[in-house]
């Protein structure tokens, strides 16, 4: 073994994986173990595989993924907190042949931006929404989100979320699935290789829907971890997510081809 040099290993025929050219070389700003990076990568892989990069415009939210435009190597706009679906609407309405998607966290999409989310979905805008639900405000240091589970601790629910005083977690994905303007609504995860593959298929379907002019929003929720905000190791966060988040936010398709599953 000692005789093998790096040059002998680094050969085209030994290549098993490369980063999509639609991710820049910029080092991700996400905490190690965070699901945002994986979600970025598979979204960009899908756009590359579908050959849509020259006509795609992405929208970054306010949240940990505010800098998505630094990492996604395509034309991007950064939107005000919660307003990405309105920004997407503006772009898609004046450039109907382009592919437009927003990438948003749960605070962004389901608290401050609920109105824009519901109405873009209800109007049936022909866009893709990728929704990262980590049950917390990661960026601002772990405050309670609209999606925070009952009993879950955050910096603004230090003794756990209490429904009576703090309200209930919002299943916005089930809500938008009820609207006639959504065409595809699914909930996935990216914490295991199998889930990554499934989620990538879902994202691909979402972009294909838009490319093919299928009427309405394709909405992909990704239940994800926020190990920093949850104050857990990445591994514990994933286990906690499986045991607590998935029962409340069950994975799977909710609406396919305009029909509730």
């Amino acid at each position: 073994m000692a005789d093998i040099t790096l040059d002998q290993i680094i050969k085209p025929e030994n290549l098993v994986y490369t980063k999509t050219k639609l991710m820049t070389d910029k080092v991700l700003s996400y905490c190690p173990g965070c699901g945002h990076g994986t979600a970025h990568r598979i979204t960009m892989e899908v756009i590359e595989e579908l050959g849509l990069e020259e006509q795609t415009i992405g929208i970054a939210p306010v949240g940990c993924s505010v800098l998505a435009y630094e990492f996604m190597n395509i034309d991007m706009q950064q939107a005000a907190h919660g307003r990405a679906p309105a920004v997407a609407t503006g772009i898609k309405r004046v450039w109907p042949d382009k592919i437009v998607f927003s990438y948003q966290g749960d605070g962004d999409l389901a608290a401050i931006g609920t109105n824009e989310t519901i109405h873009a979905c209800n109007r049936g805008e022909n866009i893709v929404i990728i929704f990262i639900n980590n049950g917390i405000y990661g960026m601002t240091g772990g405050q309670m989100a609209p999606t925070t589970l009952i009993g879950m601790k955050s910096s603004t629910s230090p003794f756990g979320r209490d429904a009576q005083r703090m309200g209930n977690p919002l299943k916005i994905t089930e809500l938008v699935a009820q609207l006639p303007g959504t065409y595809f609504v699914t909930r996935q995860a990216v914490h295991t290789p199998a889930n990554v593959r499934k989620t990538k298929r879902a994202i691909k379907k979402a972009f294909e829907n838009q490319r093919d002019g299928k009427p309405g929003v394709s909405f992909v929720e990704i239940v994800s971890n926020c190990n920093s905000g949850w104050k857990m190791t990445p591994r514990d966060a994933n286990t906690w997510m499986e045991e607590n988040m998935f029962p409340f936010y069950p994975l799977g398709d909710i609406k396919v081809d305009g029909k509730l599953v």
């Binding site: 939107a79 309105a86 609407t89 309405r93 824009e116």
Partner: peptide, 11 residues
Amino acid sequence: IAAINMVYGAA
């Protein structure tokens, strides 16, 4: 709010 953000996107 939505209207001005639609303007932002299209602009």
